[in-house]
């Protein structure tokens, strides 16, 4: 479930970044954070599925909670990066 939630977050962030053509608020950084994790978990899930079989997606409450926490952590890191760039005055636009 955390893989699905992170992938969804990556897609939504990419759509938002695409709509706001200028890279205001460093949305590209948030896209990279979510896409990086999504790609890595995709490889992890595919290898685990090929090696061990079973369900491809883990649909448990624990996995859902982890997904929410992971998405929030990514958002928090992006917020920190943007905050530092704003205070340093190096943010674009």
């Amino acid at each position: 479930m955390y893989f699905i939630l992170t992938a969804l977050a990556a897609i939504v962030t990419t759509i938002l970044w695409y709509r706001i053509s200028e890279d205001k608020y460093q949305l590209s950084t948030l896209c990279f954070i979510y896409w990086g994790a999504t790609l890595m978990w995709l490889v992890d899930h595919v290898i685990a599925f090929l090696d061990e079989g079973g369900a491809f997606f883990e649909m448990t409450l624990d996995a859902t909670l982890l997904g929410i926490i992971v998405v929030l952590c990514g958002f928090f890191v992006w917020g920190m990066i943007t905050f530092v760039k704003v205070t340093k005055g190096t943010l674009k636009n």
Binding site: I33, W35, G36, T38, M40, W41, L66
Partner: peptide, 17 residues
């Protein structure tokens, strides 16, 4: 760099969990 560090950070959170 952003792809790798972003992925590594979120995977580290998962591993801690």
């Amino acid at each position: 760099n952003a792809l790798l560090w972003g992925g590594v950070f979120l995977l580290a959170v998962e591993h801690i969990w």
